[in-house]
Amino acid sequence: MFDWIQNMADWIVFDLLKLEQGQHLAEALNFFIYDSVKILLLLFVIIFLMGIINSYFPIEKVRNFLSRNKLFGLEYLMASLFGVVTPFCSCSSVPLFIGFVRGGIPLGVTFSFLITSPLVNEVAIGLFVGLFGLKITLMYVISGVLLGMTAGIILGKFKLERFLTPWVKEVLANAEREGEAFAEEKTPFKERLPIIWAEVVNILKGVVPYVIVGIGIGGLMHGYIPEGFFEKYMNKDNLFAVPIATILAVPMYSNASGILPVVQVLVTKGIPLGTAIAFMMGVVGLSLPEAMLLKKVMTMKLIGVFFGVVTLCIIISGYLFNIIL
């Protein structure tokens, strides 16, 4: 499917720039061109597709659906799945959180949504397909959904409502089921397209520099780190590898799109995939800026419990991946 990109990379490096085959610089450049073109193309396609879905799938509908229907436990799965298709900007997490609990949606279900939404997002999916292929992407998405569900159920059991900040409690006490008539936007596709397009360009602009730098660093490492280098320290038998990788990952955020290409190279150099996936979930799913924002609605204790449970779930799924793969 991507042969033509390889041909193009070959043509640029060997014919246009007249570099010799087998030369270190030529191979690195070839790898860099092939990888960047392929990944940017996939990113573009996936962000665009998600943009179309989003345009027809507004968040208000999700909220209303979840608060209207009693689903006997399935609501955790639903909330988690909704998290996949809705876009997530960490700055929206606070209004979202309040909107959900005010709509009468249990805290645990809200957490399910809050966890999956950043964890399985369009940029991460695009990068995963480009770097690791469809099979591993699918596994990532499925485990992301299951993780959101599980962590939501666990958090729901803790009865954490008492750890919300006072003004949110007040909001909750006055929660009335707003029977707001949701005015559906009946905009034809032709008029939606420019809006979706603008959003795609916006997202790409934000991540492309990181992705390019990430692929560049990955390309260099590709050439200089010997095969199997990490097997010595980070093999599957090393029980500390997964927790350490996860805990290191949580504070990293803005450059998630730059980290994935580097991690892919690390995997080819011997880091077990489960450890790598746990690391990436930590990078994408939890972040300090998010914690700072959530401080407005949650006490530090609640944020601590929230991050703790999610981190634990990520570590467990890292172990599971290492066992299965």
Binding site: C89, C91, S92, P95, L96, G99, F100, R102, V297
Partner: peptide, 27 residues
């Protein structure tokens, strides 16, 4: 945020003109 939540919106940014929500969740 407390002020924002009075408008009952779920995603930001929101453009409000004369107290009427016109655009939300995107630039």
């Amino acid at each position: 945020i407390m002020e924002i939540m009075k408008y009952n919106v779920l995603s930001t940014p929101v453009l409000v003109i004369d107290e009427e929500i016109t655009i939300k969740g995107r630039v």
